[in-house]
């Protein structure tokens, strides 16, 4: 009988990644709702000690697959190891973060396990003993509530970063850390990481950023983004862009927010010189607080913004950066 909740934690360079605290916290809530145990699984190289800290967010048991071959994520290396752990433990629920790693890993793992997969969910519940989840579709133009067929076990889902509440860490909690066997030979040809190029070190992926300052055609050119970089640095955020700004070659493709770019849900989204086209709104309307700075009072972005400033962004953003530093000090 499938029993218990299992979450897959993530590490980067041996450090436990923030999303792991989010999924472990949510896993705890689901485990309590089911009246079952929570197991957190970590894969990596030299991660065992760090993994133990996840007990504080609610894990009853921690499984660590510690092996030099697992240092860098590839689905080809991670999937066979996790598939074995899942088969050995038979959890009822399997939860991952919808990070770039989690989205890819969960996709292939669900196919290997032959189970349904709910990608990028924003909330979870247990109803009649079954997992239900809510996921935005069409980049947030609609929401789907989903569940699983009876034969689809574990019930598998990924959680959108930054959305789920993180439990207050309980330093008094600890959990056993158990080693998992690492056997990568599933007889399949594999992709490997040939090289890692650090483009912008320390840059958080937009989908995981807590705060985003985005610029559009109103930025006038690549140099215009400098004021946004400064504001982002002051609030500890990342810089995004509209498709117009990306299309003009002012920003990299990885910065595009929208239905055909990144779908983001930060706590704070500041849209500067962005009109608010349907494809852009779709990608950011699940942000908690939206600010729009635009000189056109009729720009559609104001319909979605919690706070709007009608003015020239080049006159507003630099003093805003200074004011923000003051209130945050």
């Amino acid at each position: 009988m499938a029993q218990g909740v299992m979450v897959i934690a993530e590490q980067r360079g041996g450090e436990i990644h923030k999303i792991s605290n989010e999924v472990t916290s949510e896993g705890r809530r689901l485990a309590d709702a089911l009246g079952q145990d929570l197991t957190t699984v970590v894969l990596g190289s030299g991660v065992k000690d760090k993994a133990a800290a996840l007990a504080r967010y609610g894990a009853d048991k921690i499984i660590a697959a510690d092996d030099p071959q697992l240092e860098n994520y590839t689905s080809d290396a991670y999937v066979p190891v996790i598939a074995e752990i899942v088969k050995a433990n038979e959890p009822a629920v399997l939860l991952l973060g919808a990070s770039s790693m989690g989205k890819d890993l969960s996709a292939r793992l669900s196919a290997r396990l032959g189970v349904g997969m709910a990608q990028d969910c924003v909330s979870f519940a247990v109803e009649d003993g079954k997992l239900t989840a809510v996921r935005p579709i069409y980049a947030g133009k609609a929401y789907a509530k989903v569940t699983f067929s009876d034969d689809s076990l574990p019930q598998m889902a990924t959680a959108r970063p930054n959305v789920l509440a993180v439990n207050e860490p309980d330093a008094g909690r600890s959990a056993d850390v158990v080693d998992a066997p690492v056997n990568l030979d599933d007889g399949q040809s594999k992709a490997k990481v040939a090289e890692v190029v650090v483009d912008e070190s320390g840059k958080v992926d937009l989908t995981e950023a807590d705060k985003i300052v985005s610029g559009g055609r109103g930025m006038k050119g690549p140099e215009g983004f400098q004021v946004l970089e400064e504001l982002a640095a002051a609030i500890g955020g990342s810089v995004g862009a509209s498709r117009s700004a990306v299309g003009a070659g002012w920003r990299s493709h990885t910065d595009q927010v929208g239905q055909t770019g990144k779908v983001v849900s930060p706590n704070l989204y500041v849209a500067c010189g962005i009109s608010g086209a349907i494809q852009h709104l779709a990608g950011m309307s699940t942000s908690k607080v939206i600010v729009a700075i635009n000189k056109d009072p009729d720009a559609p972005i104001f319909q979605k913004a919690d706070y709007g400033v009608v003015d020239d962004l080049f006159k507003v953003v630099p003093p805003l950066t200074e004011e923000v530093k003051k209130v945050m000090a």
Binding site: S189, K192, V193, A194, V196, V197, V198, D199, K203
Partner: peptide, 13 residues
């Protein structure tokens, strides 16, 4: 494959 400020160069047969 760009992820989190890095580009991973992946290789496969």
């Amino acid at each position: 494959r760009p992820v989190e400020g890095k580009t991973l160069v992946l290789e496969a047969a």
